[in-house]
């Protein structure tokens, strides 16, 4: 038995079929995720159309700089994931571990910054239903509800992503991956990139509604 053969589950004929299947499985799951966030984007689109002024007023309370730093952090983390996949294909498991750890660090940085933003919002009384003291236009609460729900679900996905990447580090340390068998890394990478894409849209939609003078 070759080494790669032992990774093939009984229902598959060979490794290629197994890898194709798990890649496709992740893409199918991501289609679900697109529509999951899609529901929230639909709500956003409707309320922004109906209550544009309230959205402008709400967005004035966003910290554009912190949001920008987070965007850069996430874009970088996507790059490190892509490079990690690149390294494992070349058999460089040390490089893979390095990039995975870098990705985790960037992910945690994102979450910490997000945490600071949330606590500022709490201090400023901008969390509807919890602590809301803003005296703005009538529907300004909707903006903040959507902000917390959408970034909240995104952050939840980030936490899951960090967990997955940690598991990948452990599996790499145990020598599970090789140029022939590294499918879990690829599939986890797909998930991470998706979460990044969600943020690519969230940032301009919430932070940059009307920043020009």
């Amino acid at each position: 038995m070759t080494d790669s053969h032992s990774h093939v589950a009984h229902q598959f004929d060979d490794l290629a079929q197994q890898q194709d299947a798990s890649n496709l499985g992740m893409w199918a799951f991501l289609a679900t995720e697109v529509l999951f966030f899609g529901g929230m984007f639909a709500a956003y689109a409707v309320y922004r159309t109906l209550y544009y002024d309230a959205f402008v007023a709400g967005s004035q309370h966003m910290d554009v700089l912190l949001g920008a730093i987070n965007t850069a952090v996430l874009l970088l983390s996507s790059l490190t994931v892509a490079l990690g996949v690149h390294e494992v294909k070349r058999g460089n498991n040390a490089g893979l571990t390095r990039y995975l750890l870098l990705t985790i660090t960037l992910g945690l940085t994102f979450l910490v910054i997000k945490g600071f933003e949330y606590s500022h919002k709490y201090a400023d009384g901008l969390i509807p239903g919890v602590h809301f003291t803003l005296d703005g236009p009538e529907h300004v609460g909707l903006y903040f509800i959507l902000y917390f729900v959408m970034t909240g679900f995104h952050a939840l996905h980030m936490i899951v992503g960090v967990g997955i990447m940690t598991a990948m580090v452990i599996m790499t340390r145990r020598g599970r991956f090789s140029p022939e068998y590294h499918n879990p890394i690829e599939v986890s990478g797909l998930y991470w990139h998706f979460v990044d894409i969600v943020w690519i849209f969230l940032y301009p939609l919430f932070y940059l509604i009307r920043v020009h003078p």
């Binding site: 679900t32 529509l35 999951f36």
Partner: peptide, 25 residues
């Protein structure tokens, strides 16, 4: 199932948020 169920999930989640936190969605 793949393309419709997630929208139900998020709709019910928003319903839960509105009911628990008494915020207007």
């Amino acid at each position: 199932i793949l393309l419709a169920t997630p929208v139900l999930a998020i709709t019910l989640a928003l319903l839960g948020v509105e009911r628990i936190f008494r915020v207007g969605i």
